[in-house]
Amino acid sequence: MGKTKSKILVGLLALLLCVPAAAFAADTVVSADWLQANLSKVATVDIRKVEDYNAGHVPGAINVFYGVWAIQKAGLLNELPADDDLRDSLSAAGIEPTTTVVVVGSTANMAEKANNTRVGWTLKYAGVGSVAVLDGGMEKWVAAGKPVSKDAVKPKAKPYRGAFNKAVLASKAYILSSIGKAAIVDVREPDFYSGAKKLDFVARPGHLKGAVNLPTAAAYNDDGTFKPMADLEAMAKKAVGDDKGKEIIVYCDSGRVASIWWYLLSQSMGYTNVKLYDGSAQDFAKDPSVPLEP
């Protein structure tokens, strides 16, 4: 073999070693049956509290509870941790950019449901390539008669070297400057969108100028699973249209529940430019200079 061919082969080999292995292809919302069949191919991350994880979890699942992924900071309830802390948490969990992560949480109430997609959003923010959530959460897993383990799994730590994707995050300044340009989506229930009701921690009722309403509760069946994707797509189309490249910014009261429609729009329906404003109404409503509409 000539020197030139050898150099080409060495070069190709080096190139192959540098390219990360492709993530295992998973849907973005997976069923209990699917997860059970693919447990060995994915990293199952249980985001419930340590006590709940210890009481019983999907076999092989590691525990990285919700409070690791979203923290209370500067008077706001659901903020991203610092990038270096997030990188540490991913490293400790042994998650790599190429890992296929299935998020398993509870679906006992709307906040718990939203925890699943909010962690999904955070993983995408951190640059994890393939993320899925378990449809119906742990409750569905148990109801389906799937095996439950009490053996805590200690993840094998690896340095996380993913590139963060900050395009999924919108700041207050950004969303205010996008009014009239992007589709602003208020995912709260109609009474909260209209300002007839408000939560205590939100300073003023009402929604941002021009925001459309896409309520979150409508996305779920009674058992905590998502409604059929065709139904969800019809709801989304009615609110934001079907231009998949259009910029969309979602918000709610504290930046948690909005992640549900962020997740569905961007991960499941193919809208390519969707941002989540994690400060949400808790942030903008305390600024008296921000006009709110009923």
């Binding site: 990285v64 509870f65 409070g67 690791v68 923290i71 209370q72 948490s89 400790a92």
Partner: peptide, 12 residues
């Protein structure tokens, strides 16, 4: 009570 959880709780 706010902020992060204790790192030891985070690790189970």
């Amino acid at each position: 009570y706010g902020g992060n959880a204790d790192v030891h709780y985070q690790k189970g």
